[in-house]
Design a protein around this nucleic acid. Sequence first.
DNA 1: ATTTGTGTTGAA
DNA 2: TCAACACAAATG
Length: 355
Amino acid sequence: MDTSCIDEASAESCTFAGKVKAPPTPLPLQRMGSGTSGVYDPVLEPGTEAESSKKLPSSQYKGVVPQPNGRWGAQIYERHQRVWLGTFGEESEAARAYDVAAQRFRGRDAVTNFKPLSESDENGAAELAFLASHSKAEIVDMLRKHTYHDELTQSRRWANKFSNRNVTKLLMSSVGPLPGQINHQLLFDKVVTPSDVGKLNRLVVPKQHAEKNFPLRNENIDNVAVSKGVLLNFEDGAGKVWRFRYSYWNSSQSYVLTKGWSRFVKEKSLKAGDVVSFWKSNGPEEQLYIGCKSRSTLPDHQAVPVNNSPVVVRLFGVDIGASMAPQNKNGKRVRDMDLFPQHESLIKKQCVNAL
DNA sequence: ATTTGTGTTGAA
DNA sequence: TCAACACAAATG
């Protein structure tokens, strides 16, 4: 594959790098793209296309394409590249495969063919958690091998032994709350500065995010904004609650987390450049969460690399860290996940398992 | 011999 | 981003 497009950094520059098709190939010209060409639905319909070995019947579903042999292929696009999701006998089956991929790749607001998963529904929540606990590559692999349903069912087995709340915590401890996708909404990330982890014992909360997410009741006394500050509780991935004093510093005109912050920095071994993330639960409780990762935001939390807490490793019944062995239960060969190179192997430090 | 799924392109 | 088309690579 195009290994030149492995990480975000080279994203743009690699678009077609190293693959330069010599001459734009003077192809047999006139070839139209999308089926919008003329009319395609009218006459040729189900079953009757037998005679037409010409045009393949386009699918009514998104992400589904016809195969020469009458079967259906599913595909989804990710950063200018097609990710093949496999072939299926039923058009709707391919459509469902697309839906699964779409929700894993694009989150809750992905456009789907059928009813999207809902966290409000018991099974929906379980499936979302399942999706969240597997890398894109793993999900795609399951779809291509048609083992998604089985694996999902299997995961529900052990999941039932835990309360939803605990499952949520465990998931967070392994991959983080999955911004915008599952039960927690990402409020914002901040790459901590040297002073955020230095002797000042405070974290500057970007004004924009502070005012939007952490409203501070400022009583205006005599035209002077006065704020006593408040205590905010944040839960980390391990379920530990951190209490920080949150206030506004007139001197520097900035919002800060002070008392309690240094302990967090110390325990998580936060270093300048690491990323601290803040989430809130979607429910009515409005619980706040905090987590951190080393270095810049990972594009896709992905399968958690190397140092997982042993607890997590056992959790999913699959080896999260070392992408599943390149072979499924059927013992069939798997064209390994050099599929989408991505950047699943970035190494993280303490922050990860501390999450 | 078939089927999968990649290469490519035009359109949105 | 997406799907249509052609056809080479992968499978049985």
